[in-house]
């Protein structure tokens, strides 16, 4: 049985089944397919800079190596912060009751970027949370789908069509003042890999 989202709202338990949501699942998608002269689909591959080696799809491996070129398995790693301090592991929150707070303001949700969305199916819904969601309340908890090194914020909302969980992290946007310097030039390009043209 799939693990559920479990919440503890001031002693009142609730449980939800979750399904990943997204534009492609809702409306489908448009994708670019390259074909050869006979109309057969082709695949992307990598050609090394010297032109000597062609690496087919799936032909490269991402792994961690130490100075002796020995492989360190994923489960044998420890995350550290910029100062070298060990980070505490964060276990998956699925199947484990998480404290739910709220209602919080809509601005609180607006202060997060939430690229991950789940459609929720209430398996058991506490009456106070049910009433709060129906009144338009936004509720906040924490979320980590798998074991990792950091949890994200999770917001519960309900509209006429159902209950949804929005998962993300704070935007970190500061107040802008007249003397505020411009953002750093090397900031990542938000739309660099934005080539799915799924909205069109």
């Amino acid at each position: 049985m799939a693990r559920q989202l479990l919440f503890d709202f001031d002693g009142e338990p609730s449980a939800f089944d979750l399904t990943r949501h997204g534009r492609e699942k809702l409306h489908g998608r448009k994708r670019k397919v390259v074909v050869d002269d006979e109309g057969r689909p082709c695949q992307r591959a990598l050609l090394t800079e010297d032109g000597a080696t062609l690496i087919p799809p799936g032909g490269a491996a991402e792994l961690y190596l130490d100075a002796a070129f020995d492989v360190v398995e994923k489960g044998d790693r420890q995350a550290v912060d910029a100062a070298g301090r060990a980070l505490e592991p964060v276990p998956s929150t699925l199947g484990v009751a998480q404290r739910l707070v709220g209602p919080v303001s809509a601005q609180r949700l607006l202060d997060h970027v939430t690229p991950v969305v789940y459609q929720l199916d209430p398996a058991s819904l506490g009456p106070r949370l049910q009433a709060g969601l129906a009144e338009g309340g936004v509720y906040e908890s924490r979320f980590s789908y798998v074991d990792g090194w950091d949890a994200q914020a999770l917001f519960l909302v309900q509209n006429d069509t159902g209950v949804y969980a929005l998962v993300g992290r704070p935007t970190g946007f500061d107040w802008v003042r007249r003397a505020t310097p411009p953002p750093a030039e090397d900031e990542a390009d938000l739309f660099e890999d934005d080539l799915d043209f799924g909205m069109l």
Partner: peptide, 23 residues
């Protein structure tokens, strides 16, 4: 920003992309 070390002895490690198969 975060990085990884080997959990056993904290020796530094880094990610690498290696050739597995060629055409």
């Amino acid at each position: 920003r975060r990085s990884f070390v080997a959990a056993a002895d904290r020796r530094p490690i880094r990610s690498a992309r290696l050739i597995k198969v060629t055409e």
